[in-house]
Nucleic acid binder design. Structure first.
Length: 390
DNA sequence: TCTGGGGTCCTCGGGCCC
DNA sequence: TCTGGGGCCCGAGGACCC
């Protein structure tokens, strides 16, 4: 398989290119920015088409930010100051007060995400959806896909996406998904990078292990403890030693990944496994003293999950809860029921039973409700099997 | 000092059955 | 009857990803 990895950069204000920008905080709408512009700068017409005319000084700064939000993503200029994804905004405000703070607008992202994926499947139909801003593409059978090692196709995709959305797109091209994803990092943003099998030693091995998709902070720290910092060092490790320290599966995977081996096929249509809703409270709540408030939030979460399931046509058999306490300890409880459901009252009832099994001495910071073991509500697998038997 | 929300997958232990 | 092991499911927790 020849794999493409493409990801779009969601920052779509050309005037902010090269500036430190973080996206994060509460769930405000980007429309709020337009609303403010219309009030404060009424002399001009403001719409999604005129975003590039918003003066840089109009954007809010991170300085003086207070609250619980975290950074969803940050520009490279902002990362120079040490800020990055998942960092608390208050900490980021200390590191880089001059950074521009843009609201997270998931509705906007979903809109751009759909447009970007539609453009790609028009050009290359074999696409794996990897989230809001990422896809893998198998371009082996795309006419002209092999020209200049895939660069011609990559440029066509970038141009089409930019024309339709104004977004830039980074592309990595390689023999498999693992390397294609790493390649896409080489020339961000809006770059194209090709990594062939022969390039492994020169382009991949010098990178730190953390660059491998799947090695997170924990595995990286463990590798570092053993003096393994680069992918080259990981590749040189004895597979048996890796299996002993990381378990047989992870050990074998680490060894294969360091050698650029990845047999995973493209997953074109995948079904969801679970759906959940969770929320972090404005202030930590106590199970007894804030019982009424917690109960209302709990019910709302159940209703939201039920609505999500119904809208997307799923029912689920495993109902679960998630609690995060004030000390950040996470506890989950779940239970599997006989008949799959998408009914808010049933979900509330069974989630309530889970809650009774959880320790509730400490104050709560977050509450979540999850429904897993999903199946399509239109045609449950059990019925389908019966139908085929008779 | 602070650490979101929505997911997936893996591991491990316990219970149950053969 | 006892014991061990394997397979499977479930529940809990953890790592990781975007």
């Amino acid at each position: 398989m020849d794999a493409f990895y493409a990801s779009v950069e969601l920052l779509r204000y050309p005037q902010l290119k090269g500036l430190p920008v973080v996206i994060g905080g509460g769930r405000r709408r980007e429309d709020d920015l337009l609303a403010r512009l219309r009030t404060e700068r009424p002399e001009q017409e403001w719409s999604a088409a005129t975003l590039d005319r918003i003066p840089v000084e109009f954007f809010p700064r991170l300085q003086g930010y207070t609250g619980r939000g975290v950074i969803t993503t940050a520009t490279y200029a902002a990362r120079q100051f040490g800020v990055g994804s998942a960092m608390g905004l208050m900490k980021a405000a200390k590191l880089c007060p001059q950074a521009i703070l843009l609201p997270v607008d998931f509705e906007q992202y979903r809109h751009y995400s759909r447009t970007f994926k539609a453009i790609i499947t028009d050009i290359a139909p074999l696409m794996e959806d990897r989230g809001v801003d990422e896809v893998y593409i198998d371009f082996t059978a795309v006419p002209g896909g092999q020209r200049e090692g895939g660069r011609v196709l990559a440029r066509l995709i970038q141009k089409s996406i930019f024309q339709a959305t104004g977004l830039t797109c980074s592309v990595g091209i390689a023999p498999n998904k693992l390397i294609a994803k790493m390649a896409s990092e080489f020339n961000k943003p809006n770059g194209i990078a090709v990594v062939m099998e022969d390039d492994l030693q020169s382009k991949i091995w010098p990178l730190p292990c953390r660059k491998i998709n799947g090695i997170g902070p924990k595995a990286d720290a463990k590798l570092q403890q053993h003096g393994i910092h680069s992918i080259a060092q990981l590749a040189a490790c004895d597979p048996l030693w890796l299996a002993r320290h990381f378990g047989p599966r992870t050990g074998a995977w680490l060894h294969a990944a360091a050698h650029g081996r990845d047999e995973r096929p493209l997953v074109i249509d995948s079904e969801p496994v679970s759906m959940s809703r969770e929320t972090t409270f404005e202030r930590d709540l106590h199970a007894v003293r804030d019982r009424a408030e917690l109960g209302a939030i709990f019910t709302r979460l159940c209703e939201q999950v039920a609505a999500d399931l119904q809208r997307k046509g799923y029912v689920g058999k495993t109902i679960g809860i998630k609690l995060r306490f004030d000390d950040f300890q996470i506890v989950t409880r779940d239970l599997t029921i006989e008949q799959p459901t998408a009914d808010a009252r049933l979900i509330r009832q069974h989630a309530g039973q889970c809650l009774k099994r959880a320790p509730l001495q400490k104050r709560l910071r977050l509450l979540g409700v999850r429904v897993g073991n999903l199946q399509s509500s239109s045609q449950p697998p059990e019925q389908a099997r019966e139908a085929s038997l008779f």
